[in-house]
Design a protein around this nucleic acid. Structure first.
Lengths: 138, 138
DNA sequence: TCCTAACTTGGACTTCGTCTAAGTCAACAC
DNA sequence: GTGTTGACTTAGACGAAGTCCAAGTTAGGA
């Protein structure tokens, strides 16, 4: 995420304080915030930022490939800034905690041609589920 | 899905016409309806069935393990009656069409212990994405 | 410094889903 | 067959997440 602002400027982005704050909030490893959480953290730094701008900016970051959208449970989408290193997600069924994980092998390779139904398959997302150490019984 | 009604009765379900209609609508291969689509089809057979009952019944079927909930895109959840045979999903990025697919190997095995962060990992869901024959250019 | 297209804002609106209180009925007992 | 009862269903209000729009503001080039 470090040089994100530079990359965005290079793509013709107008660098407003709102966009800067959203990009700063979305920084780090294992960050998977909802739009509302991003808005709450952004508000702490820039009190008048609106929800619409947060949604707009997140949508633009996703379209530019700088941020991944993670739809894990049919509730609010989460935004993952770690878009430049391939990874999958491990989610706690108890508390909803999310970790980035790196399985070995390419999941795409496991889908034989006969099972592709003529699709041009380009990506595979894997979601692992289980209980985290805090939610595990005993 | 064939003997679903029998299984449900065996579990103490009261077999109402509404539940029967919802179960009938959710029958077949590659069926992935949203709750609203289920409601629309159920209404065709039983005009006075309410949305709340469709949601209740779908939730119960999911809790009983007879139907899978598929959250593919952060929009409406889809309901997949093919719960008794392990499978994954292939989704068209163009039109949203969904197919059940059967990759080989166990995706769970690809996640090394060092990448499990102490979680008791129990399941892996894979979503393949690409363009279906109708949406493919040329 | 000025100008203007791009950006932001607040609030209304949509979609998807949940909840509740009142009414209905499947299944069991007789 | 009839009665009883708790489980089920209903309509509509409500809530959460996200989109849209017209009006106002501003970053960055001239």
């Amino acid at each position: 995420m470090s040089d994100l602002l530079g990359r965005l400027r290079g793509r013709g982005w107008r660098l407003t304080s709102q966009r800067r704050v959203v990009a700063e909030v979305l920084d780090g490893e294992h960050v998977h915030l909802t739009a509302d959480e991003v808005h709450a953290r952004a508000t702490a730094r820039l009190p008048e930022i609106s929800r619409a701008t947060v949604y707009n900016t997140l949508g633009e970051l996703v379209a530019l490939g700088e941020v991944l959208e993670v739809a894990t449970d049919g509730r609010a989408k989460r935004y993952d800034p770690n878009a430049h290193r391939a990874h999958q997600h491990l989610i706690c069924s108890g508390c909803g905690a999310i970790r980035d994980v790196h399985p070995h092998g390419d999941p795409l390779a496991a889908l034989p041609a006969a099972e592709r139904f003529g699709f041009a398959v380009t990506a595979a997302e894997v979601t692992y589920r289980g209980l985290c150490p805090n939610c595990r019984p005993s």
